[in-house]
Design a protein around this nucleic acid. Sequence first.
RNA 1: GGCCCCAUCGUCUAGGCCGGUCCAGGACACCGGGUUUUCAACCCGGCGACAGGGGUUCGAAUCCCCUUGGGGCUACCA
Length: 549
Amino acid sequence: MVDSTSSPRVVTRFAPSPTGYLHIGGARTALFNWLLAKKTGGKFILRIEDTDLKRNTPTATQQVIDDLKWLGITWDEGPEVGGPNAPYFQSQRRETYDKYIKQLLDMGRAYYCFESTEELGQLRGQAEAQKKGFIYQRPAELPTQKDVEKAKAEGKPVTIRFAMPEGTIVINDIVRGEVSFNTAELGDFIIIKSDGFPTYNFACVIDDHLMGITHVIRGQEHLMNTPGQQALWQALGFGNPPQYAHMSVTISESGGKLSKRERPQTLRKAIKARPEIYLGKLADIGGIGTDVLKDFLAGDSVPDVPAIEAIAKYLGVELPEINVVDFFKNGYIPEAMVNFLALLGWSTGDTREVMPLQELIDCFDITRLTKSNSLFDRGKLVAYNTEHLKMLPKEKLLAHFKAYLKVVDSPVAKADNETLLRLIKICEGARTLADIEHKCKFLFVADDKIEFDEKAVQKVLLKDNGLAMLKLVRDKLAEMPELTEQGIEDMLRSLANQNNVGLGKVAQPLRVAITGSTISPPIFDSVQMLGKQNTLARIDNTLKKFTGK
RNA sequence: GGCCCCAUCGUCUAGGCCGGUCCAGGACACCGGGUUUUCAACCCGGCGACAGGGGUUCGAAUCCCCUUGGGGCUACCA
């Protein structure tokens, strides 16, 4: 176990509550803790804070684990890998917490309470009416075991609060410096809920101590919890608390803290903006009841993720990417995500920005965390993705691409590795994997299933003799015994020369004919990969469709 | 409302602790031009910031105070 007298090895942790997919803010927190552990040769622990039965979803832990793995963040102790401090699920550590609760109770540093949520709410309302903050008033005489029996008999809820000591608590934060709090303004907080489970503020202290956590990097939203946790730490005689580093918060482009609520909110807005849409239809699409949908629109509840996504897709609404999987599904690669995330609220101090993971680890310095909040700028993320797409070894890219094709259920997934590698190569400069997929999809659909882009048809085929040029190209192509990139290029160039036009005038009609769009990989590769037969078939289809013969 | 945090280009940031080398550097975005078989990529150039007001000082982006603005927390959530 951890021996604090020997060289103080760094131990950090990421402690998510399993309420759904890992969101980008959580990923950033995990990343910084992981980076610090890697940099110092320390240990990184994954601990699941599932003490709120109401909020946990059964699949969430797995989702979080998958997302962390996708990002490349691995843990030395935690779910799946185990470790000396198991179990790593707080819901399975009840006896441990009970032991410390008993200790606090015996010392008179914790006490029982019997107010219901409603009573508490009332008191809070009164305080608010007087424009004062609500602070729980500790009774002059603390309830005894007898009172507890009585309350239980009467069916009252029983909770336990920590008796905050009087005075000022100063926390020495790595990023904020010294921050002091007057405990009178904090009040006694609940450490054991009426269902017997510990609250976050309690369980976290016990586990951080038991697991030998030396550094806690977390969002600024936890700053106000820290004095309480530190007081608990002292009351329990745990020695020196961990070093805290409260990072800046990531702000969304629409205002406040980046939150997973943004996706449903965006959808809700979109539905309300189109009152003509029949709700029953939307409910069907989402596979939910109309009443569920109505509750959602009223702001009362949120349907599950697949329902949200299905409805958004149907309406053509782009949901903001908030969860790590959202970025995965939109064609971002983890190397870029990690790089970008690391530079939100942290910098190397020199001008280095785009760098591989190992370099990130090497130059990580916890003292260089920024104090001010930062806005999540998707445009910059795209730029990082573009750079990493260029930098990454081809085999790794191939693996990412295959995973992406699978998750979006693309027809391109049928291609073999060799083909996929070639697609990646001819799409050099792409910004996302989605770009590559969109560009190359035409190779994997049937000849008669090409969807023509209206603008492309107008601009390229119906203007400047586009169709006539296409016919010329068709005939030349038909004459070629075998299609090679070079052969196609020579043919197209000489055709352009003969007609005294630029290459674009011959290449674009061909491009639109075989892909339906003006956007594709380089035309020579495109035709060669599609093959002679399919290319001719598509040209003929196009000619027939737009000239009537 | 209360408590706490923060404040440099549109955005991410460097610089600030140890005041002069900063009429503020880089990156992304944007605008203009170039390259080009499309998109993307690429090349060149441009626009663009120390929130405001008081101090301290020979001198302040850098130190102090106030104002304003932004953010967080204010649960039997984490």
